[in-house]
Design a protein around this nucleic acid. Structure first.
Lengths: 343, 343
DNA sequence: ACGCCCTAGGCGAACGTTCGCTTTCGACGC
DNA sequence: GCGTCGAAAGCGAACGTTCGCCTAGGGCGT
C-alpha cells in the first residue's frame, strides 16, 4: 500500500502531483472544505492513501494559529494522585482531539522558569497547572499575562485562573467528625507539607470540627508528616512519645496514613482498638492495608478531566471567564476506624 | 517591561521592525548564527526583550524538519511503575531540550490506531513505547515503517526497535532462590496478566530456580493475580483453598503482593512465620506494609531515562542501530521473608 | 591610488499548510 | 444568441522561521 518515499515525509504536494490537481485543491478535499467534484475527490483520496499521507500539524497550526495542544505542568507525576489527575486530563483532551505535552518541574520548587517558556515556544493553546508547590511561584504571573488560558488545581498568586479541586476544609472536617463520632477525643493530625493550601485547609477543617464538638484544640497533637510514609512514620513516633494518650490519628493523605499505620504497629498499638486512623485520597491499596484504611475518597480522575474540560472550553470561546469547580468527596469507612458502619 | 501586543504573538518581524533591521538579521542574532555587529546585536536583543519575544517552535521545526519533540505512548500512567518510568524519560528529554507529548492508550488494548497517527501528525522526532499491552498490537508495525526511531520497554512484534528493561527471568529466579534459601519448598506464584512477556519470563525464572534446586514444579501452585491487589487477593484465596500447605508466595509485583498479604492476614496466616512473601518492583510503600515487604528493586526511573537517552541518541545520528539495554535489579530483604539477612 | 578581501547586513526562497479570490467553463434562463 | 450564474479548480499570499547567497562598503596591502 504505502510506498517508500525516500526520506522526506509525503506532503500535500506529493499527493497533488500524483492525482494531477493543484495542491490547494488537494488540501480542500483532505480537510473537507470547498467544493470538489466527486471524481477528483475520489482520485485524491486514493492517492493520499496510496502515498500514506499524514498531514503536518506543525504547518497547519502555523496558519491556523492554534496548535491543538495543551501544556500540562506538573510537579512530579510519579505522585500517584497527580498521575491519576493526568490520566483524566489526557483522556479528556484526547476525546476533544487535543494533544498533551507535559513538563514536570523539580519536586523542590523551581523549574518553572524552564517549563513555562518551553510551553510558550510550542504555542500551546492552554495550560493546565497541576503542581501543588508552585502555589508560591511568582514566575507564574507570566501565564496570566499571556493570551493563553490556564486552569489550575491549586490557587495561583495573581488570580485570574480557573480552579478545579475539592473542598479541603470539608475534608478535614469529615475526617475529624468521623473520629469524634466514634468516640475519640485525643485526635492527632499528621499533616502534609506545612504551608501548602491543602495542608492548612484540612487542618482548619479539623479545628472547626473539634470546636463544633466542644473539644479543645491542642497543638501538641499536630505534627508534620511531610511528603512520604517515612516522614509520617517519624511524625507518629514523635506524637506517641509526646502524648501517649492519643487514640486516633487523622493522616492528611493515604501515603502518610501508611506510615502512621506502620509506626503504630511498631509501637504495638492495635488499630483500630487502641488507636483509630483515617486517611485521605483513597489510593489503590487503601483496602489492603492492615487493617484496611478508612479514608476520604478524592475523585482525582474527575478532577483531571473536569479541569481539562474547563480549559478546553476556555480555549474554544476566547471568553476566559474565571471559574471555580469543587468536586464532591466522600468518606469510605473501613477497618482502621472500627468495623461498625458509621452511616 | 513587556508591552501589550494586541492579540497576536510577537514575531521576529516585530522585533526587526522595532530595531530597524531586516527580520533575517534578527533571526541570526536570536539563534546565534551569522556575523552581526555588537551594536545591532545589542539593539536587537533589547528589542526582543522589550517586546517579550518568544520564538515559535512550530515555524522553526517546519524548516528545520525536526520538532524537538518525543512522543510517548503509554498504557496508563496511573500505573505507578510506569509513571516513574515516564518521569525518568521526561527529565532526560528535558535535559536534552526535548519536549514530550504523551498519549495514553486504553488499558484494555486498542487505542493505538489513534495514538500513533496523532504522533505522526505532530511529526515527533522519536517514539517511546511504554505500554506493556501493546506487545501484541500489530498496528505497531507502522512505527517501524516510518522514518521515526523508536525505543520500547517491551518486545514489539516486528522487531527492529531498541529495548530497555530488566531481565525478567532473572527476577523470577532471584525471588525463588531467596525463598528456597529460606528453606521454603511449597512456593506459590501469584502472576501478573498471563501471556505478557514479563509475566511469562518471571515464571520461567521461577521454574528454572526450582529445577536447579531439585524441587519439582507444580502448576497447582501457580495462580493468576492479574493487574491489581484485588485479583491477587482472590488468587491467594484460591491457592490456599487448593494447597493449604503453601509456606511461601512469590507475588510477581508489589501491588499483587499487597493483595497477597491481605489475603494471608484474612486467612489468619502469619507472615513470615507461616508463609513468606516476596514481591517485585519495590514500590514506595513496600517498607511500610505489614510486615515490610521483601522485594526486588526495579530501577524504573533509570529505565525511563536510559530509554530516552537511547532514543535521543538514535534521533541525533540517524543511524538506528537496534540495541538492547538490560538494567540490574537487586533483592531487598525485609520482614516478609523473615528478619535474618540472607546472603 | 587601485584592487581585494572581509564583514555586516539584506534578499529570496523554502518548509507544509489554509484561505480568499480569481478564472474557466458548461448550463440555463430569457 | 446573449448574459448570468454556479460549480470546479487554480493561484497567490500568508503563517514564522532558517538558510544560502548576494551586495555594499570600509580597511588594507601594494
Amino acid at each position: 500500500m504505502r510506498e517508500r518515499t525516500g526520506s522526506r515525509h509525503v506532503s500535500v504536494k506529493d499527493v497533488a502531483a500524483r492525482s494531477g490537481v493543484s495542491f490547494q485543491t488537494t488540501s480542500k478535499v483532505l480537510n473537507g472544505g470547498g467544493s470538489v467534484s466527486e471524481l477528483t475527490r475520489a482520485r485524491i483520496l486514493q492517492a493520499a492513501s496510496d502515498l500514506g499521507y499524514v498531514p503536518n500539524l506543525q504547518a497547519r497550526s502555523l496558519v491556523m494559529q492554534r496548535t491543538q495542544t495543551i501544556g500540562v505542568i506538573t510537579s512530579d507525576f510519579s505522585d500517584h494522585n497527580l498521575s491519576r489527575v493526568l490520566v483524566g486530563a489526557e483522556q479528556e483532551a484526547r476525546r476533544q482531539d487535543y494533544g498533551v505535552i507535559v513538563s514536570s518541574i523539580e519536586p523542590e520548587g523551581s523549574g518553572t522558569e524552564y517549563a513555562l517558556p518551553a510551553m510558550m515556544e510550542r504555542r500551546v493553546d492552554g495550560i493546565l497547572l497541576a503542581a501543588p508547590q508552585l502555589e508560591e511561584d511568582m514566575a507564574l504571573e507570566h501565564v496570566l499575562d499571556r493570551r493563553v488560558p490556564a486552569v489550575s488545581l491549586t490557587p495561583v498568586p495573581g488570580g485570574g485562573v480557573s480552579m478545579v479541586g475539592v473542598d479541603d476544609v470539608e475534608i478535614g472536617a469529615i475526617a475529624t467528625r468521623h473520629l469524634l463520632e466514634r468516640g475519640h477525643r485525643a485526635i492527632a493530625v499528621v499533616t502534609g507539607v506545612r504551608g501548602r493550601h491543602d495542608t492548612e485547609k484540612r487542618l482548619r477543617g479539623y479545628r472547626e470540627a473539634l470546636q463544633r464538638a466542644g473539644v479543645a484544640f491542642d497543638d501538641q497533637l499536630v505534627e508534620e508528616g511531610g511528603r512520604d510514609s517515612d516522614g509520617a512514620m517519624r511524625a507518629t513516633q514523635r506524637l506517641l512519645a509526646r502524648r501517649p494518650d492519643i487514640n486516633a490519628v487523622f493522616a492528611q493523605n493515604d501515603m502518610l496514613a501508611v506510615g502512621v499505620l506502620a509506626a503504630l504497629r511498631n509501637a504495638g498499638r492495635r488499630v483500630p482498638d487502641e488507636c483509630a486512623v483515617v486517611g485521605c485520597d483513597d489510593i489503590d491499596i487503601a483496602p489492603y492495608t492492615a487493617p484496611p484504611l478508612t479514608t476520604i475518597h478524592v475523585p482525582f480522575y474527575e478532577i483531571g478531566s473536569e479541569a481539562m474540560r474547563l480549559l478546553l472550553g476556555a480555549v474554544m470561546d476566547g471568553a476566559a471567564t474565571e471559574r471555580g469547580v469543587v468536586l464532591p468527596v466522600r468518606l469510605i469507612v473501613r477497618g482502621s476506624t472500627g468495623q461498625g458502619a458509621a452511616r
